[in-house]
Nucleic acid binder design. Structure first.
Length: 448
RNA sequence: GUGGAUAUAGCGUAGUUGGUUAACGCGUCAGAUUGUGGUUCUGAAGACCGUCGGUUCGAGUCCGACUAUCCACCCCA
C-alpha cells in the first residue's frame, strides 16, 4: 500500500451533504444581488502579480506574505487571486465597460487563495461572494450595498451579527489623521508592544486595534478618524448614518474598523458574527474611490464588499439556521431479475424524460436491500418489477410515506408521465381522492 | 512567523494506577422460513491504536522527536 495523498493544508473537501448547504447559500445570494440589479460576472483565478501589488497595496500583509505566486514559462509571474475586487476592476477596464455608462453593478462568487496559517474561519482556499458598484459617489450607494449585505444575511436566517461602520476619510484627511495619531502615541512609544512600535512608523491606524491590554489602554483616548474628516467626508458619513437609520439598519460606529487593504477610502464596514470564533468578520467592504484610476482608468467612484462563504455557512450551522432539503428521487424502481432490469431502465428513462428524478438498481441487489436503499435516499414512490409484473403488465406504485399501494398498468404508467395529472401526483403526493382517480386514469385504454 | 491543545475502525467516542483475542454508538453488509422499506433482534466485515525511537519482562496507556490537525496571536473573508 502506498501512502495516501492528502488534501493541501487549509483546503476543504465538500461532500454532497455539505455541497447542498452551499447551494442554499449561493442561490439566496444570487437572488438578492439580482433583486438589487447586480449582474454576475467571472474572472480568471489567476492574474498578473502586479495587479494585486498595485491595488491591494505593496505593504499589505496580503501582498507581502500571503500570495501564491508562480512563474510561468515566460518571464511573467502570476498570482492566485487573494481577493475579488482587483480582478473585477481590471476586467471591466480591459473590456471597456467603464465607458458604457454608470452605475455598473456586478457580483461574483469565487474561490480566493491566501497562504495563511489555517484556523477556525480562515482557510487557504476560501470562497467569496462579493459585489462592486462603479460610478456612484452618493452616500445612498454606500447605504444600498450595506442594505444589500444586510438583506442577504437576513434572507439566510442569520441573526447574531452586528454591523460596524467607520469612515477613514479621503487621502487628505487620512494624512492629517495619521499625523495626529503619531503625535498622540509618540510620548507612549516605549510602552507599546513591539509590533505597535513598528506600526507607529508604518501605519499608525493599525495601533487602534491591537489586542495587547497595554496598547489598548493607551489607545483608549486616541483621536478617532471621525474627528479628522474634512467637510465633504464628514457630510458623506453623516448622510450615510442618517440613511441607515431610516432603513432601520442597526449599526455602531467603530473607529477600530480600519481595513487591511490599501485601496479603501471613506466608508468602511464589517458585519461581525458572534458565533464562529475569533475570525468573526463575515462580510467586509467599503468605498475605494481611488482604485480605478490606480489601475489605469478614469477617476471613478467605487465601492463594494466581500462576504466569506465558509464563515457564513459556519455561522448558519452554529446558530441552527435552516438549509434547503436535498432533492430526493420521485420514483425508485426495484427490478428483480435481468429482464426486469431492462424494463426498469426503460421506465426510469421515461420518468426522467418527463422531468422527474428516478433511480433503479445497478448492482444487482435483492428486493429487501433495494427497499432499504429507496427509503434511505428518500424516494417518494417505489415500484417493484419482477416476473409477475412483466407477465401481467401490472405493478403496484407504493407511496413510501404512507405505505399505500396503488395498482398501475406499466405501459400506461410510462406514457402517463407527461400528463398534468401525474405531475400533480408527484408534486403533492397521493391523496385518497386522487388515488382512485389515478387508478382509473391509468387503467384507461386511451390515456395519452 | 509565534504560542497552546489533540492524534484509537468510514464517522463519533471508551479504554481504569502500563498486563494476555483493543470496547461501544452511528454507518456499511447479511440474516430473522425464501418478492417489499422506515422499528426491533441476530450476525459479519472493518483499527499494524498518526510516524519513528526510547523506558519496561510487557505500552493504546509513560518519555522524546517528527508529522498532521485544531484553537489562539497576527491578518482578514
Amino acid at each position: 500500500m502506498s501512502m495516501q495523498i492528502k488534501r493541501p493544508k487549509g483546503t476543504q473537501d465538500m461532500l454532497p451533504s455539505q455541497a447542498a448547504k452551499w447551494r442554499t447559500v449561493e442561490e439566496t445570494v444570487r437572488q438578492v444581488a439580482e433583486q438589487f440589479g447586480f449582474k454576475e460576472m467571472r474572472t480568471p483565478v489567476f492574474e498578473e502579480t502586479g495587479l494585486y501589488v498595485r491595488s491591494v497595496g505593496d505593504t499589505s500583509d496580503v501582498v507581502t506574505k500571503e500570495m501564491y505566486t508562480v512563474s510561468s514559462k515566460g518571464s511573467d509571474t502570476f498570482t492566485l487571486r487573494p481577493e475579488g475586487t482587483a480582478g473585477i476592476v481590471r476586467a471591466l477596464l480591459e473590456n471597456g465597460v467603464m465607458n458604457e455608462g454608470f452605475p455598473q453593478k456586478v457580483y461574483y462568487l469565487m474561490p480566493c487563495y491566501r497562504h495563511e496559517k489555517p484556523q477556525a474561519g480562515r482557510l487557504r482556499e476560501f470562497h467569496q461572494f462579493g459585489l462592486e458598484m462603479f460610478g456612484a459617489a452618493s452616500p445612498y450607494a454606500d447605504a444600498e450595498i450595506i442594505l444589500l449585505a444586510s438583506t442577504v444575511l437576513e434572507s439566510l436566517g442569520i441573526e447574531n451579527v452586528s454591523l460596524h461602520i467607520n469612515s477613514i476619510g479621503c487621502p487628505e484627511c487620512r494624512a492629517k489623521y495619521r499625523d495626529a495619531l503619531r503625535e498622540y502615541f509618540a510620548p507612549h512609544e516605549s510602552e507599546l508592544c513591539e509590533t505597535c512600535q513598528e506600526r507607529l512608523k508604518k501605519n499608525p491606524m493599525r495601533l487602534l486595534d491591537c489586542k495587547s491590554p497595554i496598547c489598548k489602554e493607551i489607545a483608549k483616548n486616541a483621536p478617532t478618524t471621525v474627528d479628522f474628516l474634512c467637510d465633504d467626508c464628514r457630510a458623506h458619513f453623516d448622510t450615510l448614518k442618517d440613511i441607515l437609520t431610516d432603513f432601520g439598519v442597526a449599526f455602531t460606529v467603530d473607529p477600530k474598523i480600519v481595513r487591511g487593504l490599501d485601496y479603501y477610502t471613506r466608508t468602511v464596514f464589517e458585519f461581525i458574527s458572534e458565533d464562529i470564533g475569533a475570525q468573526g468578520t463575515v462580510c467586509g467592504g467599503g468605498r475605494y474611490d481611488g482604485l480605478v484610476s490606480e489601475l489605469g482608468g478614469q477617476a471613478v467612484p467605487a465601492l463594494g464588499f466581500g462576504m466569506g462563504l465558509e464563515r457564513i455557512i459556519m455561522t448558519m450551522e452554529n446558530s441552527g439556521c435552516e438549509f434547503e432539503a436535498p432533492k430526493t428521487p420521485d420514483l425508485y424502481i426495484a427490478p428483480m431479475g435481468e429482464k426486469a432490469q431492462r424494463k426498469a431502465a426503460l421506465l426510469a428513462d421515461a420518468v426522467r424524460r418527463n422531468g422527474y428524478a428516478a433511480e433503479t438498481d445497478l448492482i444487482g441487489r435483492g428486493i429487501k436491500p433495494q427497499m432499504r436503499y429507496a427509503d434511505k435516499v428518500g424516494a417518494k414512490f417505489v415500484v417493484v418489477i419482477g416476473d409477475n409484473e412483466l407477465e401481467s403488465g401490472e405493478a403496484k406504485l407504493k407511496n413510501m410515506r404512507t405505505g399505500d399501494e396503488t395498482p398501475v398498468v406499466l405501459e400506461n404508467f410510462m406514457a402517463a408521465f407527461s400528463s398534468a395529472f401525474i405531475n400533480e401526483v408527484f408534486e403533492n403526493g397521493l391523496g385518497d381522492d386522487i388515488v382512485g382517480a389515478m387508478t382509473d386514469e391509468i387503467s384507461g385504454e386511451d390515456k395519452e
